[in-house]
Design a binder for these strands. Structure first.
Lengths: 200, 200
DNA sequence: TCAAAAGTGTTCTAGCTACACCCATGG
DNA sequence: CCATGGGTGTAGCTAGAACACTTTTGA
């Protein structure tokens, strides 16, 4: 026990859900994770919350919350098929602190989708380009062309073809090739890249 | 006095100095700033360190230092003519914690120079394009063309002409136009911009 | 045979870099 | 008058957007 026992951690988890991003907060109310002496902050987070479903975690910001507690917020990203059912629940009425941190989390994700391979943390293990496109649309908040998305990510070496095809649904259509992310750890794939919204 | 008295703040100040970036740390050793109850973190920083010479401050990362203390690190940017003489001193032998935070600070600055007007925090009140070019070279770590730097920053509306010319030195040369930054607060001037290093 | 979905090839364009050239001053 | 540093105009390049067209399936 140290004299910094009141420091808490707060998780903001994002997951692509249809055309939108689903926002989940750790615990519903702020978790009361206490940071032990000499324990890295990430370890305290993992001890306080169920981070197993999260494919990527990064620190957002440390702030004094309006209720007086000092809290470090984290951005967690979950694949579409991840079970976020334990500590994580969506809040309908966000406190001002929550709303600001959610906005920061969303902005961070948007930016990193452009110049890193962070998509790996939102996508399931294998996926079609159409499925990946839906995830990018949800996270970026604007339309994305499947054609160009594939070309850009393959050129950067983020995507790999995987054996097999996804058969079409009842409506027909050509079977879709399956892909996976080449790496499941955050990498800066193109420092200067940008995925821009459509021109109009 | 709360039970979070051991939380400290650590300042990493950067200032362009000739062809290089000068790195200064707050206090020499880590400052022992205590964070009071319900006090915003930035206020604790300002109370602990002399931040008056810094034209911009932003939070970097909160981590458990190797000596056990929980510390929030800040990036501070100072204009070339700012007096950084009080709390701030350059450390020759950096601890591993310091070195990592300095690298993070430098990376953050490099990135933001591309898509924000953060140059305002490194430049003096008015300057010639040549002087600004030197600052960008120091911060980015690669050559920058004065020609293109001017065009890019003027197009984005970051730079404004200011009355008057800087007379040439003894070697002669055309007098240089004077500029200033249109805003002295951080703004995202072009979300997708990139200042790239020379091709070869 | 046609609609639907996936994939390919090509053109277009914004925003940068590169470079040749012109301007104003000191000695 | 020429060296020096500042400024302008324009061409070139590159990554990504746009779009027309081809492929493969179900019914």
């Amino acid at each position: 026990m140290t004299d910094s026992t009141s420091h808490t951690v707060l998780g903001v988890a994002l997951r692509a859900r249809g055309p939108h991003l689903e926002v989940l907060l750790a615990g519903g109310r702020l978790p009361e994770a206490r940071v032990g002496a000499r324990e890295p902050l990430a370890a305290a987070l993992a001890r306080a919350l169920d981070v197993a479903p999260l494919a990527h975690i990064e620190q957002l910001e440390t702030r004094r919350l309006r209720d007086g507690r000092l809290a470090t917020a984290y951005l967690g990203l979950a694949p579409t098929d991840a079970p976020l059912d334990g500590d994580w629940r969506s809040e309908l009425a966000l406190t001002p602190d929550h709303a600001e941190l959610v906005a920061a989390a969303h902005g961070r994700l948007r930016a990193k989708l452009s110049y890193t391979n962070v998509g790996f943390a939102l996508a399931p293990a294998t996926f079609t380009i159409s499925e990946l496109r839906e995830i990018y649309v949800a996270a970026l908040g604007h339309d994305v062309s499947a054609t160009n998305l594939q070309r850009v990510l393959v050129r950067r070496g983020e995507l790999e073809r995987v054996e097999g095809l996804r058969p079409p649904g009842r409506a027909g259509g050509r079977p879709a090739a399956l892909f996976r992310f080449a790496s499941k750890h955050l990498e800066v794939t193109d420092e200067f890249a940008a995925l821009r919204p459509p021109h109009r």
